[in-house]
Computed example of a mutant assay.
Amino acid sequence: MTTQTPMDRALVEEAAKKSALIWVQGTEGAPRALWHVWHEGAATLVGDGPREQPLQGLGLTDGGTATVTVRSKDKGGRLVSWPARVVELTPGGEAWTAAVEELKGKRLNAPDAERIAERWARECRVLRLEPASGALAEPPTDSLAAAPLPTPAITRRPVPAGLPKLLARGKRARKG
């Protein structure tokens, strides 16, 4: 197994710090975009709670492995992929508390921001994706595009029957 050079480790850290999302491929399922923070040498994320990002279906288990891909913030293209070791932090532990403090600052629009740590301890998993020894992935030869995951959320619906009349009435009111 090839070990990463100091330049490789610096690339991984800098790319992960600057990107709000990472793509994570666990031992199961398709890669998924997840928000994270870079904390003490690892990508740290929270999920699996009812109001947090879903981690189920990825096969992210304590002591398991994953592949993490970071995209460029400005162009959106892949910068670097690396092998990671999955570490699940124990709620209330020193490492968990430090990680949660970092994650709280990046969690946008939390409905219970003042009690979020309590909810995460009760309902969620906090994971560290630590860069493992091994070579960084080679650049892809194709786009790596994949079909979106199935979801009940939709953005297109039929136009309501009364909408054209409302829009026409608005145009007449502006002209008059």
Rank of each mutant, 00 (worst) to 15 (best):
P111Y: 05
G63Q: 04
E130V: 15
R71M: 13
W82P: 04
A117P: 00
V24A: 03
G63V: 06
V68C: 04
D74Y: 07
L60D: 00
V126Q: 03
R107T: 15
E118W: 00
G64C: 07
G77V: 11
G41N: 09
I116R: 03
I116V: 13
D48W: 07
G105I: 08
G93H: 08
L127P: 03
G47P: 00
L45M: 09
C124S: 15
A42Q: 04
A66W: 00
E118A: 15
L108S: 12
I22P: 00
E94C: 07
T44V: 15
E102V: 10
S19I: 09
G59P: 05
A66N: 00
L136P: 11
V86T: 02
V100K: 01
A137V: 04
A113Q: 12
P54G: 10
S72F: 04
G77T: 13
D62K: 01
E52Q: 14
G49T: 04
E130W: 00
C124I: 06
A135T: 13
Q53E: 07
A66Q: 01
H36T: 07
L79H: 06
G92F: 02
R119Q: 08
G47W: 00
L79M: 12
R85C: 05
L136S: 14
W82T: 09
A99K: 04
K75F: 05
I22F: 01
A98G: 11
